[in-house]
Design a protein around this nucleic acid. Structure first.
Lengths: 144, 144
DNA sequence: AATCTAATTTATAATAATTATAAATAAAGA
DNA sequence: TCTTTATTTATAATTATTATAAATTAGATT
C-alpha cells in the first residue's frame, strides 16, 4: 500500500466507491509502519472527521483486506487485530511489554515465497512472529 | 504435556490444587493433537462431568499456560484461541476451509531455538503459521 | 479423623473486539 | 440532474474471554 491513486483506481475497478472517510483512512495507512489496530486508526481519524464512526473504519479495513492491500496480524497476547499495509512478505517482532510490532526482513530463501506445498497443504500465506522484548523494554525491565 | 503424574506433581509444587475437574482436563489434553479451543474441551468435559463450568476450563487453561505446559495459538482467521499441549518448538499448518491445525516439524536449524536476539529484541518465542488448504479441502474446493 | 484456610468451582455479570442492522446519505454513472 | 446502489451512521447483537462473589473443596495442620 504505497500509492493512494493506484489504490483508489483498483478499488473503483472492483466496484468500491471512494468516500472522504475512505480516502482519509487510506492516507493514515499509507507508509504507516506502526501496525495500528482499528481503534488506533479511528482515534487519528476522529481528529480530522469528528463525526466518523468506528464501523466505517472496520468496513474500510475489511475492504482493504479483500483487495489484498493490507494484512491482518493475529497475536496471542493481544486481543485486537493489528493491520499492516506492507503486504510484501516479511516477519514481525512483537514486544510483550509495550505491544509494539516491528518489521523484520525475511530470510532471502523465503523472499520468493508465494505458494508452496507442505504435508499436502496448499499454502497461500506464511506468518512468522517473534515474541520478546524490544530494546527499550529490556532496559526498563532490567531496572525494575 | 506427556505425563499426567509429572504434570500434577509440578502443578502442586507451584501451589496449585488438583481438583477432579482439572484432572479430567489434563486427561483430555495429554497426547491431544487436535489443537482444541476452550469450548471444544468444555464439550468433551461436559459428557464426563455434566455440572462443570466453562469458566473452569478457562481457569485451568490459564494455569497450564502459566506452567508452560501448553501453548496458545492465535490465528487471524479464527477468533478463538487454540491450545497446543506440544510445547516443543514446531510450526503449524492452518486450513482456511475446515479450520484444522496440523503440526509440522521445524527445520533442523531452528530446533535448538530457545532464545535469540533480533534487531535488539530479546526473543522468547517464535510462532510460525502456514495458512492454506488441507488435502481434503483442496479436493472439495476443486469440485465446487 | 476432624478442622481449617486458601484455592477453586460455579453461575452469572462484565468487558471488549468485531459484526450486523436498518434508516439516512452520498458516490458515480446515465 | 436523476437514479441506483454502496456507504455511513448510530446502535444493537454477537462472541470469546475475564471478573465477581458466594458456595465448595483440596490438602495441610492438628
Amino acid at each position: 500500500m504505497q500509492n493512494i491513486d493506484e489504490l483508489i483506481e483498483e478499488a473503483q475497478k472492483q466496484g468500491y466507491k471512494i468516500t472522504p472517510q475512505r480516502r482519509e483512512i487510506f492516507k493514515i495507512l499509507v507508509n504507516n509502519d506502526s501496525h495500528p489496530k482499528a481503534e488506533d486508526i479511528y482515534n487519528i481519524l476522529k481528529d480530522r472527521m469528528p463525526d466518523v464512526s468506528l464501523a466505517t473504519v472496520y468496513n474500510t479495513l475489511n475492504m482493504l483486506k479483500e483487495l489484498g492491500m493490507i494484512d491482518a496480524i493475529a497475536l496471542f497476547e493481544d486481543d485486537s487485530v493489528r493491520y499492516d499495509p506492507t503486504t510484501k512478505a516479511h516477519d514481525h517482532l512483537y514486544c510483550l511489554h509495550c505491544n509494539r510490532i516491528v518489521d523484520v526482513e525475511k530470510d532471502q530463501d523465503d523472499l520468493g515465497f508465494t505458494e508452496k506445498e507442505i504435508s499436502g497443504f496448499q499454502i497461500v500465506k506464511r506468518q512468522v512472529t517473534y515474541y520478546g522484548y524490544c530494546p527499550e523494554c529490556r532496559d526498563i525491565l532490567k531496572t525494575t
